[in-house]
Amino acid sequence: MADVKVLVVDDSLTMRVLISGALERIKGVAVVGAADGAAEARAMVEQYRPEVMTLDVEMPGMSGLDYLAEIMETRPMPVIMFSTRTAAGAAESVEALRLGAIDCFPKPKVAVQSELDAIINKLGKRIKSARNADLKRRIGGAPGHARKAPPPAMNWNGRILAIGADAANTQALFDLFQSFPANCPPTLVVQQMSPGLLTPMIDQLRDQIAPKVVEAADGMKVEQGTIYFAPQSETHMVVDTWPEGRIRLLAREPVAGERPSISLLFASVAKAAGANGLGVLLALDDEDGAAGLRAMLAGGAYAIGRTGTDFSLSKGMVSQPVAGDAISANVLKLCGK
């Protein structure tokens, strides 16, 4: 397979050189250009046709967020953001993910190679998997922050919903949860994302969706109308029984390199709820999540995987492959009477 063509966009010459040099050391990645801002990047996109872009959030003139919104409206491509490791930077990172960026990495505090070495493996993996990103064109610009009118109440059938995602699925999660009524099915979410981004993401969701959104805590009762996010900690999130289940946070080793683990959540839901469990895997390249889908089916639960993944019916990993824009309707149908 040909190298992934990457365009680096950053207003700092030092950072452009540093990031480009780091990316060139990743086998299978080729840097085709380095732009100092949105105007130069537009020209380079036309000239070099990159497959992935790295983009600085904080740029003079047109900001990285504004340029990202333009990209997702006019010419969607996988974009990886770099942002400062501050409270404001975390909020901007979540906004970038909501707009359609596939990941957001901390920008080095000082322009030295060792700062990038710490994330180079994950960055390389994300760039190579970006070809499979489920990009969604935004018509009419970026979505606003105003809360939409809540969907009508549903007649819940007793199913518990478990969702496995990564940073690239943030936009999909916002779209999914905006379709949920206030009395949505009880929903447990494991989302693999950079440290420090969970709290600002929950804050944004609370402003925009009808259901209650919380960071899960050990012993919490799992109730209809609430979405529970696994904390970014040294624990895994599972549910103990169903119905009348409670969340348990388990201090165990990572699974497939991940903690919290999508697979452990899915397996616990399958064991506790059986046919009353529903698992939805949004991540495209998640080894942890693939094992979780198998656990769902083995436990008699229903499993949904997005089309365009390897989670095929023929491999016995999903009950139903679903296109990204049809997930909301399918989930609400499967959880309603």
Results as ranks from 00 to 15, higher is better:
L313M: 15
I247G: 09
I262K: 01
T235R: 13
R294L: 12
I304F: 02
P321G: 09
D325L: 12
G274F: 05
G257P: 10
G305C: 14
A256K: 11
A272C: 06
V280L: 15
D310V: 12
R259Y: 01
M237T: 06
V331W: 00
F266W: 05
M317K: 09
S268Y: 03
V239S: 05
G300I: 08
P243R: 07
M317W: 13
V239W: 01
D286Q: 09
R248S: 12
G257Q: 03
I262N: 04
Y302V: 15
I262V: 15
L249Q: 01
G292K: 00
A301D: 09
V238I: 15
D240I: 04
Q320C: 12
N330V: 15
L250S: 07
E244P: 01
P321E: 14
G299R: 03
A329G: 13
V238N: 04
I304G: 00
R294D: 08
T235H: 09
M237G: 06
L250G: 03
K271T: 13
A301T: 09
K271V: 05
S312R: 13
G300L: 08
V238S: 04
T241M: 10
D240V: 11
G305L: 01
L332G: 10
T241A: 13
A323G: 11
A256L: 07
G299F: 03
L297F: 02
H236R: 10
W242D: 02
